[in-house]
Design a protein around this nucleic acid. Sequence first.
DNA 1: ACGGCTGGCTTCTCTGGAGCAAGCCAGATG
DNA 2: CATCTGGCTTGCTCCAGAGAAGCCAGCCGT
Lengths: 159, 159
Amino acid sequence: MPLRSDWSGDRCPIARSLDVVGDPWALLVLRQALQGARRYEDFRRSLSVADNVLSRRLAHLVEAGLLRREPYRDGGRTRQEYRLTEAGAELLPVLNALAQWGERHRPHADPAVHMDVVHTACGAVTAGPDRCTACGAELAAGDVTWRKSWAGDTALVGV
Amino acid sequence: MPLRSDWSGDRCPIARSLDVVGDPWALLVLRQALQGARRYEDFRRSLSVADNVLSRRLAHLVEAGLLRREPYRDGGRTRQEYRLTEAGAELLPVLNALAQWGERHRPHADPAVHMDVVHTACGAVTAGPDRCTACGAELAAGDVTWRKSWAGDTALVGV
DNA sequence: ACGGCTGGCTTCTCTGGAGCAAGCCAGATG
DNA sequence: CATCTGGCTTGCTCCAGAGAAGCCAGCCGT
């Protein structure tokens, strides 16, 4: 009797996806990874997440193939950083769709607070999660900027 | 010290969305609602979900405005059914994106098991979550059919 | 050389939701 | 009158999240 259901073998692809990313922390970690977070501390600080939760989440996402561990040199030591895999980066449409839905249906208390999905090449705000509604180009992680009214724009990083 | 973080006031719209739907059961309930489930028993049977979990989820989704309770006559009794609101139906791009990602990155053990997102009007399989990649039409819930290799197609219902 | 700092974790306690099973209530049905 | 059915609620156990503390390795200032 597991704590949580296992949908990894479900016939519905939505259920199989949710088995991996049907958890707020998983998607928030991926959101940060798309915005350039790589190191444990990057994630911890930007997400205010408890350490045990973060290390478990990272391990799960690595095991699921959405992130990959890469060693890097920190002075005399070898540490690990977490980079998006292609599978991880291709969750961008899911995150964009959530962002666009949230902007529309869960507005912030302060009406000046917004985040737009911008197609970097043409500079237009797009309402489509995977394709620019202005110029029609397909949107991969490297082509998108999240424009935030409360902070600098963030150009997303691909694999 | 809540059990789970509260992102309802977060500046990032992704976090605000996840505050409502960042939970596998919430999205699975909405998936069933799009496929026509309305009554408690519909959800319970199709999701194999525990009763306490289902009743709490339904109550949360009603409170969040993604579902709405409507009375209906069942013989001599008045019962409640759960219908999608516009906000709930507009999560379709999120579910489509998850379905398309799952088809690509979490294939079923049996390679014959697939689910495609079909634009009902033109009959084409679309790779876009919110817009038909074949004819370019925007996809609302009433325009989409989920074609399942293991069962009949399901035409989704709008509000 | 020694104490403190930093990054990346692991371990501890506490609490409440998930999974499961059982119970409950009202109307229909036999 | 008894059973069935739909729509829940209640009780149990167990584990994941929240939060705080601890730990280890290397650099850093004195």
